[in-house]
Design a protein around this nucleic acid. Sequence first.
DNA 1: ATTATTTAGTATAACGTATATACTAAATAT
DNA 2: ATATTTAGTATATACGTTATACTAAATAAT
Lengths: 400, 400
Amino acid sequence: MPSLGPIGNFDLVKKINMEHALSTILQYRPLSRAKIASLTGLNKMTVSSCVDLFVQKGFVVELGTTGTSRGRPPTLVDLNEKAGICVGVDIEINHFTVLITDLLGKRLDSKVFPLQSKDPFFFVEKISIVLRDIVRDHGTRQLGIVGVGIVIPGYYNIRTDVVDFSANLQEWNDFPLRAELSKRVPDTAFYINPAPYAGAMGEVHFGGAKSAHHLVYVTSSWGLSAGVYSKGELFTGSTGTAGRLGHSTIHMNGKKCTCGSRGCWEMYASIKALYELLDTTPQALSFAEIVEGIKRGDSRMTSAVHELGHYQGIGLANVVNAYNPKVICIGGLLALLGPTLINSIWNTLREMIPERFLLNLEIYCSDLGELGIAHGGVSMVLRHLSGMIIEHSLLEQPKV
Amino acid sequence: MPSLGPIGNFDLVKKINMEHALSTILQYRPLSRAKIASLTGLNKMTVSSCVDLFVQKGFVVELGTTGTSRGRPPTLVDLNEKAGICVGVDIEINHFTVLITDLLGKRLDSKVFPLQSKDPFFFVEKISIVLRDIVRDHGTRQLGIVGVGIVIPGYYNIRTDVVDFSANLQEWNDFPLRAELSKRVPDTAFYINPAPYAGAMGEVHFGGAKSAHHLVYVTSSWGLSAGVYSKGELFTGSTGTAGRLGHSTIHMNGKKCTCGSRGCWEMYASIKALYELLDTTPQALSFAEIVEGIKRGDSRMTSAVHELGHYQGIGLANVVNAYNPKVICIGGLLALLGPTLINSIWNTLREMIPERFLLNLEIYCSDLGELGIAHGGVSMVLRHLSGMIIEHSLLEQPKV
DNA sequence: ATTATTTAGTATAACGTATATACTAAATAT
DNA sequence: ATATTTAGTATATACGTTATACTAAATAAT
């Protein structure tokens, strides 16, 4: 049975219509009250009462009028993007990145901090200091810190609310990340997701997959894993480890993997595999040099990437079969290989899957760059923006 | 952006609360109005007004009072399961099964019809006659035919509304099944889904996965494919072919498959593969005899099933990684192999996936039997029952 | 220049649903 | 026989949407 949500009453009606009005503003901003009414189907008065409340609380601002057509010129309204800030934190093995944005997701500041220890408490202490500074600097805004999106290099158990890594960073296993953060930085909303989930959300919000209804984002770097976004929300599975594709088998009895199994996709289609194909090491040949070589048309590197693309294609064929996405986005370092990679992926896909099942599919490489995953963290926060604004708007409403 | 649904007004409030009341009746029936109020959080008067409307329209009946506790004895109300009927149609290659149930999904009648031709029009004409008879016999009930759930041996494109098979039954490709059915049997709701999707819904509604939030149902017969049920709804993908796992690669460069690719799961873990392992044919050794042999403890057959289970396990490990389900249900003929199969599946899973990711997982074989898939078709209809009852209840409401 | 027309937005009263309060109904416990 | 408890109903109230009538402010037409 799908859960039924809240019961119907005046509160709910008000909230639903505020949500309609606000979402429309966020999507079409700036626009007039009249436009909101026609877009949403809401009554003019309903729109006015909602918008006026937002304006009164400072979440929405009235811009001037702009008379283009006939009749009384409309008063444009827009989100007050300064009414609060969002924070995205991208944790990697040796460092973490903190990104601060306004309510539109525009970068205000970002900073990289080294992680000298693999102890999760070391990270928690360090980020707490950073966050407390941010709260001090921005806490006076109407909304203060809307939330903090934490992106972790592994999985987070959404049932038990603890970290669920396996191989790398074993020290983090079973660490109650949210609880430890909340203890140190109270009254702050934390949203925690694995990197590929954040990547998917970032692409939908900021990247090339805007408003895609069915997206699979594949982080391809030293490891491989996927974030699945479907019909407006993440597909997490029962505990939050859906999309753990790096260790799915594409070649049983194949190469031994660090995870203990054999023939994992990761062994054939990650950067590690690329270096094996090139029979060299990152020390001898940096990844940037490979990217450069591809652009130059270096034949040895190109053919290695083609072979890598073939293996990527085998795994992505499984992705197509499993999730039937509309869009596949390649993220991580391998995204820099661009069309060279994509082409050979397509070649393999066409060999493996009947044309019929490929008609509705696009594949592209992310171009959000360095801060892409941190922006994904911000998008996890922005997803809750309208709910938070509505909550604040209904707070302390003076009874007449 | 998640779509925002209807705007908030009195109609919506009424519908939401009717939905709460009715769903509670369906789930806890029979029960009193007071109990509905306490379970839903609705006001007593709200519950009364909803229930009274249902009773007046004949969808809900008042049973007698049952005084157990102190105080005025409650009046129990229950769904009037005779207020309409549901139809499930399970199409297979050579025949189709029609199941008629009451509003609780209880079998009223079922019948198997041969399919002498592979022409989809042949099927459509034949089922139309059957359905028109059903309409004639049951059309007078309050709801008439709530809907017809059609289960097809392949995929259905939910974007273009046409059949999307590939290899088997190529004649059906691009056939606009819903349109052709609606043309012949008007004013009837048709719900069309592939067999594994229906299987998943059937298990959630009638089988061993009741109210599971994350289920993957794997039909294992001559082919393999999966239906994914997550958080109260099917995971369909963008066109409706998600879960096409029979042709996902578990052994690249492996056995050539009928689909043109190589190393498909289906080549190693289906009944076809079992017969290859046993080096015999269905003519020489029926599947029923194999099932019998397993129960008897026949060592040759048992070891073949163990090996089959190993290959099933490899594919199911990929299922666990991809979808992170709480429950995996094995359906189709291989479900009859029961614990023998399940045990070796578990052995392989434990070799391939860290214990941490298996803690929240159950695997079982479906025991819904012969009519399981047809019941899945019925569950596709029942999913719309409360909505349909509410719609009918609000129809022709006399204005005061 | 004046008037008609068009579009934006507001004021006000009516509508309809939930809800609180007071009530009746019907049982058991004292 | 009375008090108490629980179920369910009757009635008045509260409140957000909504229809109607209105004001505001622009352009187009005369």
